[in-house]
């Protein structure tokens, strides 16, 4: 790996450069994937579809050589959210009719549990998809793809910049935390000491992010993003292969089928098809 490449991956985004078919894929297909799969699952009335798609995403992650990291990401996200939603929806949802278990102080209702799993499933599809897209796509390629699709360069730059925000804030927090420990703030140990250590750094982190936004605005001007009537060309050229064109069509078809089915399912009583 060249020195420059190393710097790029260390400093600017969540992109992890690994040679894989997913990495080489046209970014537009990945954007279609995130949106079509996510919206399709959200619309679809049964929860099994989301989990089928999550299973599919695991296969994609394996092809992208990211199975380990992807699993970690999904577990770190899914477990706490599921527990939280199960407690809130399962125990207290007003929709609860069917009682699964009675704890005395509260009852676990089937409807709430189903709702919790449905929500978690949909979130996993969206976030998992988004995670895979950002880790397998060089940001420059992503923005070029969006511009090819008609997005203007200012918007493209902002998308690129916001993709960098999360890793940037993470790095910032790490640096500020270092500086705090060097001034006697204990960051290791119990939850409460850690939380206390975290409080004073929120201010500077937000501040420096604001400064960043301002600098970004200025960058747009100084780099000639304001220039009118000239269509800028990009350094990264992208073409859709026939396979990718087909993949795009399949994804759109998936979305349409899901939405049609959802509409059909919702109109069932009206259409006079028994419950």
């Amino acid at each position: 790996m060249s020195k420059q490449n190393k710097i790029k991956t260390k400093k600017t985004s969540s992109y992890i450069p690994l040679d894989s078919p997913i990495d080489r894929m046209h970014p537009m297909v990945k954007i279609y994937g995130v949106l079509c799969l996510g919206i399709g699952c959200a619309a679809f009335p049964f929860l099994w579809l989301s989990y089928a798609v999550v299973a599919f995403l695991f296969c994609v992650a394996w092809r992208a050589k990211l199975l380990g990291r992807f699993s970690k990401f999904i577990i770190a996200f899914a477990v706490p959210i599921t527990c939280m939603l199960l407690i809130i929806q399962g125990l207290y949802s007003p929709k609860n009719v069917t009682v699964l278990a009675d704890f005395g102080f509260a009852r676990l209702g089937l409807e709430g549990v189903v709702y919790a799993f449905k929500t978690v499933g949909t979130l996993l599809v969206f976030l998992g998809g988004f995670y895979l897209m950002t880790t397998t796509t060089y940001p420059g390629k992503l923005v070029t793809a969006m511009q090819d699709a008609g997005l203007n360069s200012k918007a493209g730059y902002l998308v690129l910049a916001s993709l960098n925000v999360v890793p940037q804030i993470q790095r910032r927090i790490a640096v500020i935390q270092e500086a705090q420990t060097a001034r006697g703030v204990e960051v290791e140990g119990t939850m409460s000491t850690r939380f206390k250590a975290f409080l004073p750094i929120i201010g500077p982190t937000v501040m420096s992010s604001l400064v960043d936004v301002q600098e970004r605005g200025m960058t747009l001007e100084t780099r000639g993003f304001g220039v009118k009537d000239v269509r800028p060309t990009s350094f990264v050229a992208l073409y859709l292969t026939p396979g990718e064109k087909a993949a795009k069509k399949v994804l759109v078809a998936f979305l349409i089928v899901c939405v049609l089915f959802a509409v059909f399912w919702a109109l069932r009583p009206v259409l006079g098809l028994g419950v």
Binding site: I176, T181, A182, G184, E186, P200, G203
Partner: peptide, 23 residues
């Protein structure tokens, strides 16, 4: 021991004051 404990004996002034100042 932790950095916070060491900070009593070993002071460290960061290259970029913006990393350090926050009050």
């Amino acid at each position: 021991q932790s950095t916070a404990k060491w900070s009593k004996r070993v002071g460290y002034v960061f290259q970029n004051p913006d990393d350090q100042l926050f009050l």
